[in-house]
């Protein structure tokens, strides 16, 4: 039996994989192209189709996850539009740097090393912060989006950035007030890295919104997703022009991820972020290790390392999405026990 030209087993595989990615995407606002594109490449799809279909899938999932976060009041549209403006300029600048490095014949190695260092660095930082209690060590409630953020919950770097009162000042959700120029600066820097590394940038932007601008985690996730709708939509359109989007891949993936994104988004209002932050950091570390292994495989021509890389990425994604679901169920049970009469 075939659906969209794929065997039933492949359709089930794509739906299941989409479910896994959707949970991560809904919860963290990242993880789409980071997971899907390498998986499609290892499955033997051409690079153009793997990247284009990955982007189209990210676009569809971000639409669903953004709508869900909007329902919970976790999208700051003003911040989102400013971030899009700054990021777009940054991506252009990043692309120019890549073209310059390509002319020098250094692009491949420098980009790979930067990717591993950045992914590993953010992963190590988030894991360290989570293990030691972090800035705002008591954690920020995921359901605190409607309330003004507690000063103790704002990371030190964000407090420093917020202290530069260069007009015009922009009021953001959560009672945060930041200079327009600081927002554009952070957006430009994240866009620069995104354009330089050729990635969607959720894993850079979401921590940047929290650690650098100081918006509460749920709003950082919702606003990041809102931005991905535009970047994913434009990116997939450009790839679709060259026939790089395969609906037979995108449609079943999206069917699974739409459900997973609902689960992940709903979990943000149940699970304490600190419970899960350590897994998020470990997933980034796993991703950095996977990219390093793949690069070593490419340099030395060891094909098996590509498979090891994929197993590392999928394993860490499975671990973290499982942790999100498990922590949600545990939190619900604890809530039920604490509210039941003794």
């Amino acid at each position: 039996m075939e659906i969209l030209g794929l065997s039933l087993a492949m359709v089930v595989l794509f739906v299941g994989f989409g479910l896994l990615v959707g949970v991560l995407f809904g919860f963290f606002g990242m993880g789409g192209s980071f997971l899907v594109t390498p998986a499609l490449l290892v499955m033997g799809y051409p690079t153009r189709v793997a990247v284009g279909s990955g982007l189209a899938f990210v676009f569809g999932t971000s639409v669903i996850a953004t709508l869900k976060h909007r329902d919970m009041g976790q999208v700051d549209y003003k911040l989102g539009v400013l971030m899009i403006a700054g990021t777009t300029a940054g991506i252009e600048a990043g692309k120019e740097i890549v073209l310059h490095l390509e002319a020098l014949g250094l692009a491949g190695s420098i980009i790979s090393v930067t990717y591993v260092v950045l992914l590993g660095g953010i992963g190590a930082f988030v894991t360290y912060e989570a293990l030691r209690g972090g800035d705002g060590g008591d954690g920020i409630d995921h359901d605190a989006a409607e309330d003004d953020v507690d000063a103790d919950d704002i990371p030190e770097i964000a407090k420093k950035i917020q202290s530069y009162r260069i007009p015009p000042m922009i009021s953001l959700r959560g009672g945060v007030s930041v200079s327009l120029w600081m927002i554009l600066g952070v957006a430009f820097a994240t866009g620069l890295l995104s354009g330089f590394l050729g990635v969607g940038g959720g894993f850079i932007r979401m921590p940047a919104l929290f650690y650098l601008i100081g918006v509460p985690v749920p709003i950082a996730v919702g606003t990041d997703l809102f931005e991905i709708v535009f970047s994913g939509g434009l990116g997939s359109f450009l790839y679709a022009l060259d026939g790089g989007v395969d609906l037979a891949i995108v449609l079943p993936l999206l069917a699974g991820s739409a459900f997973g994104a609902r689960v992940g988004s709903a979990a943000t209002s149940i699970v304490d972020e600190d419970d899960i932050k350590v897994y998020f950091g470990l997933m980034l570390l796993g991703g950095a290790l996977a990219v390093a292994v793949r690069e070593i495989g490419n340099v030395y021509g060891i094909g098996a390392l590509n498979t090891v890389s994929l197993v590392l990425i999928l394993g860490s994604a499975l671990l973290v999405s499982g942790a999100v679901v498990y922590s949600s169920i545990t939190a619900l049970r604890e809530e039920s026990q604490s509210s039941s009469p003794v």
Binding site: T61, V63, K68, A240, L247, L254, A255, A258, F259
Partner: peptide, 12 residues
């Protein structure tokens, strides 16, 4: 891309 958007809306 419209087809992807339509599927996303239907699924939502």
């Amino acid at each position: 891309i419209g087809a992807v958007l339509l599927e996303a809306a239907i699924l939502y």
